[in-house]
Simulated scan of single mutants.
Amino acid sequence: MKKVLLFLAQGFEEYEAAVFTDVLGWSRVVGDVPVEVVTAGLRPEIQCTWSLIVKPQAQLKDLDLAEFDALAIPGGFQRAGFYEDAYHEDFLEAVRHFDKTGKPIAAICVGAMPVGKSGVLTGRNATTYHLVNARRRKQLAEFGAVVLDQHVVVDRNIITSTGPATGLEVALILLEMLTTRENVEKVQEAMAIIDPKPL
Rank of each mutant, 00 (worst) to 15 (best):
E176P: 08
L140K: 05
Q188F: 08
V30P: 05
G144N: 01
K2M: 15
T128V: 05
I159T: 09
A72I: 01
M113T: 11
A86C: 04
K100W: 07
Y83T: 02
E45T: 14
A171K: 03
E185K: 11
E182V: 09
P74F: 04
G163K: 04
Q47T: 15
A145G: 07
L52Y: 13
L175A: 07
E13S: 12
R156I: 06
D32T: 12
H151E: 15
G41P: 01
A190F: 14
F98I: 01
A112V: 07
R124V: 14
L52T: 14
G111A: 08
Q188I: 01
A171P: 01
Q188R: 15
L178H: 03
I193P: 00
F12W: 11
L199W: 15
E84C: 02
D149N: 15
A171I: 01
I194A: 12
G11I: 06
V30W: 10
S118Y: 03
P56G: 10
S118F: 03
R43Q: 15
N183T: 05
V153A: 03
H97I: 10
R43S: 13
A107V: 00
F20C: 01
T21C: 11
L60C: 06
T162W: 08
M113V: 12
G167I: 13
L6M: 11
H130R: 15
V153W: 02
L140R: 02
V110Y: 00
I158G: 00
F12L: 13
R135D: 15
R96K: 14
V115Q: 00
V153Y: 05
Y129L: 09
L92D: 07
V29Y: 13
L8C: 13
A107H: 04
A86L: 02
D195P: 15
E67F: 06
D90C: 06
A40N: 12
A107T: 04
G25F: 09
H151F: 11
A141L: 00
Q59W: 11
A145C: 09
I53Y: 11
P114V: 06
A165R: 08
L52I: 14
F7H: 01
A107F: 01
K100L: 13
L52H: 13
N133P: 01
G123K: 01
V132N: 13
A107P: 00
H88Q: 12
G31P: 05
N157C: 06
R181I: 10
E89F: 08
I173Q: 07
M191F: 05
E67V: 07
A18K: 05
T49M: 06
P114H: 11
K117T: 08
L92R: 00
K2W: 13
E84H: 05
V154A: 10
M113N: 04
V147H: 03
H130C: 08
L8V: 11
A70S: 08
F7E: 00
D149W: 12
H130A: 15
G25A: 11
V115N: 03
H88I: 09
T162P: 02
T49P: 03
K100P: 02
S118H: 04
